[in-house]
């Protein structure tokens, strides 16, 4: 059991080690997320209807923190995609590790990347709201981030192993990003979605994993009240499990091919 966990740890640490080599990648990602916050949100704050949102920068910041995990966790999918294309998986299979260890290791490696990337954004939330959440809320925030990054990492591995072409992978990645982003409550409050859109669309948008995580962060920092945070956490657990199973299945299928 211990050696089994050690095998997973080696795969995770290898992926983490490779993450640090992408300094420019990280700089690029941070720039993209910060432009949303300090260009888009700042300017938008000047034209937003105050009846809905007092301060758009503070409103959107938790959403950007949630979506930030996407690109960093998705970097693992990009690497897996390159490995598939170049036949590098043969080398991975020759290692003294089981396929399941490899699969779990890759997903957790991606999740760890997402978590590390998210830390500065969480710090930014603490600065922007100028408040420190209670230990209970802080634990929920960490758990949410862990589940969200596992979901994103698994989703990216699913896409990269299902599609082999480099440009189609990039398209799928962008498409997934936009669907998760636009069909979420990152940009607009739930009340507005409910007011103008059919109930079914509201249900879809509010149950998107990014929306769930954003709602939890907003609740933690007191931006928006939530009826029952436990329900949101349970929904997040379900998403995490679904994506984890999907990611593992597709990665294993890819190894077997």
């Amino acid at each position: 059991m211990r050696s089994y966990a050690r095998g997973i740890q080696i795969v995770v640490m290898r992926d983490l080690d490779r993450f640090w080599k992408y300094k420019w990648w990280l700089a690029g990602l941070i720039t993209m997320n910060l432009t949303d916050l300090f260009i888009f949100a700042l300017i938008f704050n000047g034209i937003v209807n105050r009846a809905y949102i007092d301060n758009y920068l503070l409103f959107i910041a938790p959403g950007i923190t949630a979506i930030a995990t996407f690109a960093s966790a998705f970097s693992i999918g990009r690497e897996v995609g390159v490995e598939v294309r170049r036949g590098y998986t043969q080398y991975l299979l020759s290692l003294p590790l089981t396929r399941f260890q490899l699969s779990i290791g890759r997903i957790l490696g991606g999740a760890l990347r997402g978590l590390i990337y998210q830390i500065p954004f969480i710090a930014l939330l603490l600065i922007l709201y100028w408040s420190i959440p209670s230990i209970e809320k802080f634990s929920i925030m960490i758990a949410t981030s862990v589940m969200l990054t596992i979901s994103m990492s698994s989703l990216s591995i699913t896409i990269s192993t299902a599609v082999r072409s480099f440009d189609l992978q990039a398209t799928m990645r962008s498409f997934t990003y936009f669907v998760l982003f636009f069909f979420s409550n990152v940009f607009y409050p739930d009340a507005l979605i409910r007011k103008y859109f059919p109930e079914i669309l509201y249900i879809i948008i509010s149950n998107n994993p990014v929306s769930i995580a954003t709602s939890i962060y907003r609740w933690i920092f007191g931006v928006m009240p939530v009826e029952d945070p436990l329900i949101l956490v349970i929904k997040m657990i379900i998403w995490c499990l679904v994506f984890f199973i999907l990611g593992s299945f597709f990665y294993l299928r890819n190894l077997m091919a």
């Binding site: 949102i53 189609l168 669907v179 636009f182 007011k195 859109f197």
Partner: peptide, 25 residues
């Protein structure tokens, strides 16, 4: 690729643009 881009654009125009237009003036 074209189909996906078109679908993405439809989402952008019919969800994002509509909601954002209610949010701002």
């Amino acid at each position: 690729f074209l189909l996906m881009r078109f679908a993405w654009f439809i989402v952008q125009v019919s969800v994002f643009a509509v909601l954002i237009s209610y949010l701002v003036t």
